[in-house]
Nucleic acid binder design. Structure first.
Length: 570
RNA sequence: CGGGGCGUAGCGCAGCUUGGUUAGCGCACCUGCCUUGGGCGCAGGGGGUCGGAGGUUCGAAUCCUCUCGCCCCGACCA
């Protein structure tokens, strides 16, 4: 491809709204443009990247006998009503009416529609298992689109769905996907983890996410370097580090106006971990509940929801009316109701609110001075101990680039996706669903591979393999050599890749500095620099964008040298 | 949805507090000359309903009201 025939609108300055590195560079290097919040135009360069990613997706999906299909984006409401998600999902779903007033929605995912198809078309165990997938647009009215193409309202997704006879079959389909996903992310040049995750609204028993570590990520993952335990903080278990506690008899302490953990700890000159954090909650099923955490811990809402169901923090007035004291001085002693306490408090001696204005109590011993139900209800944090091997956990930010869910019968039962087994017994299909966002992969790759000059694509998904930079378009020898290399390298067939090299020839009549800057910005893995200075000495230069290494290669057999350097590149 | 910030040329910004000729600067863009190893140089030029609507005023980019949009933090995230 000739640069002058290809649309690459690079910018000198980045629009001020861009914050994340991938957002900045993809805008600056002319890959994307924003239409509105969470809506992006993919320009020729980024479309090439996406197509390369999609090609990898297709190859790896076909390798596990998944079959590509495509489904409508516009869905009738009835199917979503049948599974209940029409009602469970709130503003995230784009809804509309057709001309006849029929309720419709735009597809945010395709469990319903895929299951609808399976329910109509699959009759017998002889037709199972099936894995169907598509690469297709999803629409979600995100509360807060952000970070360029990392979180958008309309995005491409490779989503696949497996239908099996039984859970053993599901395990096989699930594991096939896990293996395929590992290969996909590896081929795309990503550093990633597979982590345990919360099945959430997808339902089902088991789920994993694929996480690309990056400061731009929205998720926190807990990692144990010792035993390999790794989980999204949304579900990560952990043990709080044990701390020293001060043995003492129970005694009221005057703590005037000291309400928060920090204030009390500072006032008493003790560590926050010596305090009990007491939170009065209101649960629709259990009424008032007291949740206890160690002073250095935070409540994990989802963990507690699993134990007591939906709840909310009691208001100040509710605290006063139920306990007769303001928040800031409440504690578990003589509490009339259910007490859920984090495991960290199971032993030790603590300071806690005295249920009396301006007083705390020291010397409080759990299981002696109060009783509680013991659970892990805290947010895992760096330094906590691994739930499996008790080594220290670290916390890393990461971008979710894919996920896999065991759905079981969550969709097949309501939508009546059943088959007859070998004995003629009707059974629900056992399902799984599996998603990957190609644009997220691209963005995550950029987040993991850039420097101050621009993007550094791995060659597997770069928009081009090689960029040729003739530095002076007025110099005859420069132009002739560039044209020759452009033609020859483009056509070199290599059985290792079953495709020709994609070469971008920067044939613009601009100064060398512009070409260098744009080339580094765009981030094609190999640059071939052709300038008069080196031609005088019978060589040209080949630069690897990843490492910025420059190789001087002889004009003799230059193509072979270039191809060799290309294959040695990541 | 809560909190914060920002809307002036394609991009980056100044001007607004304290209203007053024709709204400015840099980059980009167009023309010509020049130059060719890290976003050259010189000269000339085009491009703006100052996000929108209403109001105050002799006069509004500037003050007031409403509204739309975008970004960031949080909540949410199938």
């Amino acid at each position: 491809m000739r640069y002058t025939k290809f649309f690459i609108p690079t910018l000198r300055e980045v629009p001020s709204e861009a914050e994340a590195a991938s957002h900045k560079f993809l805008l600056k290097a002319g890959y994307i443009r924003q239409l509105a919040a969470g809506l992006y135009i993919f320009l020729p360069l980024s479309w090439r990247v996406l197509n390369r990613i999609n090609k990898i997706l297709i190859e790896e999906m076909e390798a596990i006998n998944a079959q590509e299909i495509t489904m409508p984006i516009l869905h009738p409401a009835e199917i979503w009503q049948t599974t209940g998600r029409w009602y469970e999902i709130k503003e995230e779903m784009f809804r509309l009416n057709d001309r006849g007033g029929r309720e419709m929605c735009l597809g945010m995912t395709h469990e319903e529609i895929m299951t609808w198809l399976a329910s109509r078309e699959i009759r017998s165990y002889r037709e199972l298992p099936q894995i169907w997938y598509q690469i297709q647009t999803k629409l979600r009215d995100e509360a807060r689109p952000k970070s360029g193409i990392l979180r958008t309202r309309e995005f491409l997704m490779k989503d696949s769905y497996s239908f099996d006879m039984d859970v053993e079959g599901l395990d096989i389909s699930y594991n096939l996907h896990a293996e395929a996903y590992h290969k996909i992310f590896k081929r795309c040049g990503l550093r990633f983890y597979q982590v345990e995750s919360d099945p959430g609204m997808m339902g089902g028993a088991c789920a994993h996410e694929y996480m690309a570590p990056s400061p731009a990520g929205e998720d926190d993952i807990a990692i144990c370097a010792n035993c390999g335990y790794i989980a999204n903080v949304e579900i990560a278990q952990s043990f709080a580090q044990p701390v020293e506690y001060i043995e003492s008899e129970m005694e009221e302490l005057f703590t005037p106006d000291k309400r928060s953990i920090e204030e009390v700890a500072a006032f008493l000159n003790i560590n926050p971990s010596c305090l009990i954090k007491s939170l009065l909650l209101v649960s629709s099923t259990y009424g008032y509940i007291l949740a206890l955490l160690r002073g250095d811990q935070e409540l994990h809402d989802k963990k507690l929801t699993k134990i007591i169901g939906q709840f909310r923090i009691a208001s100040k007035d509710e605290v006063i009316s139920f306990l007769g004291v303001e928040p800031g001085f409440i504690g578990p002693i003589d509490f009339k109701g259910r007490i859920i306490s984090d495991n960290a408090l199971n032993e030790g001696v603590y300071v806690t609110g005295a249920n009396k204005l301006n007083y705390h109590i020291k010397g409080v011993k759990p299981n002696i001075n109060f009783t509680a139900e013991w659970h892990d209800i805290h947010i895992a944090k760096a330094g906590d101990y691994c739930p499996k091997c008790k080594s220290e956990l670290k916390i890393e930010k990461a971008i979710e680039i894919g996920n896999i869910f065991k759905l079981g019968t969550k969709y097949s039962i309501p939508l009546n996706a059943v088959y007859l087994d070998g004995k003629g017994v009707e059974k629900p299909m056992i399902m799984g669903s599996y998603g990957i966002g190609p644009a997220r992969i691209a963005a995550a790759v950029v987040e993991q591979n850039y420097d101050e000059e621009g993007i550094k694509w791995p060659k597997s998904i770069a928009p081009f393999d090689i960029q040729i930079l003739p530095l002076n378009m007025s110099d005859k020898q420069t132009v002739e050599l560039s044209e020759m290399l452009y033609k020859n390298i483009s056509e070199i067939y290599n059985s290792l890749t079953d495709r020709n090299m994609d070469v971008l020839l920067d044939d613009r009549n601009v100064r060398p500095g512009v070409k260098f800057k744009d080339a580094d910005l765009i981030g094609i893995p190999i640059q071939i620099i052709i300038g008069e200075r080196s031609l005088k000495n019978n060589y040209i230069e080949v630069k690897k964008r990843l490492t910025q290494e420059v190789f001087k290669i002889s004009l003799e057999r230059a193509e072979a040298s270039i191809v060799k350097i290309y294959y040695e590149t990541e």
